[in-house]
Design a protein around this nucleic acid. Structure first.
Lengths: 198, 198
DNA sequence: TAGTTCATGTGACGTTGTCATATGAAGACC
DNA sequence: GGTCTTCATATGACAACGTCACATGAACTA
């Protein structure tokens, strides 16, 4: 019925899924190899047949998250009826969304663990390329688009990160993360400077 | 010679200093209560006489870092010969600097641990107020200054965070963190829009 | 059918955070 | 000065953790 390689691949998938679920439910402290194994229906030592250590299991979770975002960006890029500005807005909204609904997974994605495995790093790189492509649809000039894309990406990350850490209280800054990003998008869209910063 | 309260206070200081040193030298994994105690010249259980648990010891480290930045911003604010624009630039440079020279301490400062103790949260709040005050010297309109300050703070944090996690490679984005922030400052300075974003 | 491979289960080890308890010196009171 | 109290620190112990060495048994191969 099930070949050995199929079964092993299924176990690997279940391990990654179990780790992701535990991360969402209980945060990083809840992700123990024993708990992951139990939820995946295997023992505590089983992960070592698929990953060299815990860090690489977490890297696989990060890779899965990045791949999910990448697929979403692919769908946005494939929809040619979508105005470029709205495409960018939806891409940013997707990032904000995962940052708010899955804060622990988000922290993992933007943490050093994403560079622990080659697969995860590739998933990150792919998503960055897609995001730059989406920004290029709005900005035009390639060099300017890259810099604007970088500024958008870092700003979105800064907003989500400070929100999740409780450092972006509206009562202090008189602004929500969404307002900040809308402002930044407006600034970038209205920018008519030359682009040389000597 | 040394009263009991003096000795206890000195031990507490040494524990926080030892934790900060270990954090800088070996990252979060290097900060074990045993190692902290050993470096501070006490035993592994001594921290429990000063902090309810490890998280609060780390919060004390974060508080110390924030207080250090706050003192630096105070010096900038006290120097009335300083042009407001340069004052802001130095404030931002100070944040970038600690983010790059002490990446683990920086991550702790902007992590959830900073909200674990009331003292740490107060140090964060003080620094945010000072930063907003510095931004107000450049922007003028109070509401606009707050929003610009928030955008600057989140963007700086996003840049440093992605740099430290290895997600801001210059070869991909064609931009360094400094260039991104200079661009953002330029955009904010050149902004002449109304301020309503309906 | 016999032999090989390999995913998985299990026992064990060192390390960690944390607590209960013991100790011993500093401060308070007569 | 002697006695009692207080409290910072030291020590032993425990459960949980990541990790490894080894055992097991079923899936492949010949």
């Amino acid at each position: 019925m099930v070949s050995r390689t199929e079964s092993a691949a299924a176990t690997r998938r279940e391990l990654v899924a179990a780790a992701a679920e535990l991360l969402d439910e209980s945060g990083p402290e809840g992700v123990t190899l024993r708990a992951v194994g139990a939820r995946a229906g295997v023992s505590r030592g089983a992960p070592y047949g698929h990953f060299p250590d815990k860090e690489h299991l977490l890297a696989a979770v990060a890779e899965q998250c990045w791949t999910g975002i990448g697929d979403e960006l692919d769908r946005l890029l494939a929809d040619h009826d979508l105005p470029p500005a709205e495409r960018l807005e939806r891409a940013l909204a997707g990032l904000l969304d995962i940052g708010r609904r899955r804060p622990h997974a988000y922290a993992l994605m933007f943490g050093p663990a994403s560079n622990a495995s080659a697969g995860a790093a590739a998933a990150v790189s792919r998503t960055h390329d897609q995001f730059l492509s989406i920004v290029s649809g709005v900005i035009g000039d390639p060099a300017r688009a890259r810099q604007s894309g970088a500024l958008l990406m870092t700003s979105v990350h800064g907003v989500v990160s400070m929100e999740n850490a409780g450092h972006l209280g509206v009562e202090k800054w008189h602004a929500t993360g969404d307002q900040l990003l809308r402002r930044l998008i407006g600034l970038l869209a209205a920018d008519r400077s030359t682009g040389d910063d000597a």
